[in-house]
Design a protein around this nucleic acid. Structure first.
Lengths: 216, 216
DNA sequence: CGACAACTTGAACCTGATCAAAACTTGTGG
DNA sequence: CCACAAGTTTTGATCAGGTTCAAGTTGTCG
């Protein structure tokens, strides 16, 4: 249990459940609670009027989300069946008046949320499809603390701003290149040494073109 | 002066100046202060190893930035000569222990920073070049409280993830279509009625293609 | 087993990037 | 003040990555 979770648990809270695909809150709603994930996966997303959906974050057990002051700035939906802890915003604020630690942790949390989409912009804007996918898979595997990760195709596409077709093609290439091995239907394993090699190459400032050849 | 500024001013603070293009802080540095802009313009940016720079925010007088808990998650640079107020993080945190208002405002500020890049992803990923530019110009004009805005070409490109060439071409089209009128070297005016019309059309769910024809 | 949805594959297309060169600014020194 | 050099913005031509459309395949669930 994280520090923030510990601090928060002193505020008024209770458990809530959401089934897969259920809306937790919508963009623009009043923010009257913050959440912590106990079990499952949640996505934060922005729905464009042109039918495009942009997922800005995937959240996993232990993550705190919904730290908003007034309005929800994005929608939150359950990816899988989830169990959350819901903390009353009112109560959290009261508590924060007495706990400097909590304030730091809250700000840190809000800040982490900034960090993520900021870099997300950079990746989506400047990385070719294959690298975006690899970046995501690596992150996912890391985030889940193992070498493999569960993915739902459509969601990955909407996160990386790739069409399902492109994603499919890229995955084919990655498999052909041996960088990713399928593990059943939706799980996969990343060839760790290669990923590290790539990361090293990137840091050394090599041209993306060179490394991209490795996939095909 | 905003509420947050008022609250902050009770913390230890002093004025600092940065000249155009000067680094205020870099990504990864320890966060030991937060800033408020008195005069000038600041950009938050992420420098990709492939030489690409992604600007994630432009900030103007009154804006507070640098609300980070531990590490800087992006670099901050002065766009123009700027005058800032620098608040010691230590002092702010101490103060926040006594002022629930400040906590709310800090979180709100941190949250606003999240809001922005999250939507930024959506725009960069899903809008065609012309709409991106128009979106930015409209925002800029609105942000500066007038119909005209000062822009620096290169920065705009790095914000919208467009090459200078493309930006140039788009601007030509926009001028030809009468949507944007040059006002001297770097300033411009947006034809307000048309912008509103477009916004309305978007809300009504029209296909982007249709409206895009209007520019050419 | 059959129906439906999700995923995959192929082909054509299109937007924006890149490369290269010209026009224009800006700055500097005689 | 003019001439020249350096840097930007613009323009043109070409290229390529990713989207779209359409059809086929696979997998899932009733």
């Amino acid at each position: 249990l994280s520090d923030l979770a510990n601090s928060l648990d002193q505020a008024r809270h209770w458990f809530v459940r959401y089934h897969s695909r259920q809306l937790i809150y919508d963009e623009g709603e009043a923010a009257n609670a913050i959440f912590r994930i106990r079990e499952g996966c949640v996505r934060l997303q922005i729905n464009g009027r042109n039918g495009h959906r942009q997922i800005v974050a995937f959240l996993f057990p232990g993550d705190v989300f919904g730290v908003c002051a007034l309005e929800r700035t994005s929608a939150a939906e359950a990816v899988t069946d989830t169990e959350l802890v819901r903390y009353s915003m009112q109560s959290v604020l009261q508590l924060s008046a007495h706990s400097r630690e909590l304030v730091v942790q809250l700000i840190q949390s809000a800040n982490g949320q900034f960090n993520h989409p900021a870099h997300h912009v950079e990746h989506v804007a400047h990385l070719p499809a294959a690298e975006r996918v690899l970046w995501f898979l690596t992150w996912l595997a890391h985030r889940q603390g193992r070498r493999t990760g569960e993915t739902v195709r459509r969601d990955v596409g909407d996160f990386l701003a790739l069409s399902p077709e492109t994603l499919s093609r890229v995955m084919r290439e990655l498999k052909a290149g041996g960088l990713v091995s399928p593990r059943g239907r939706r799980a996969f394993a990343i060839r760790q040494p290669l990923v590290e090699l790539r990361a090293g190459a990137e840091a050394a400032g090599e041209r993306p073109e060179e490394s991209r050849q490795n996939y095909g």
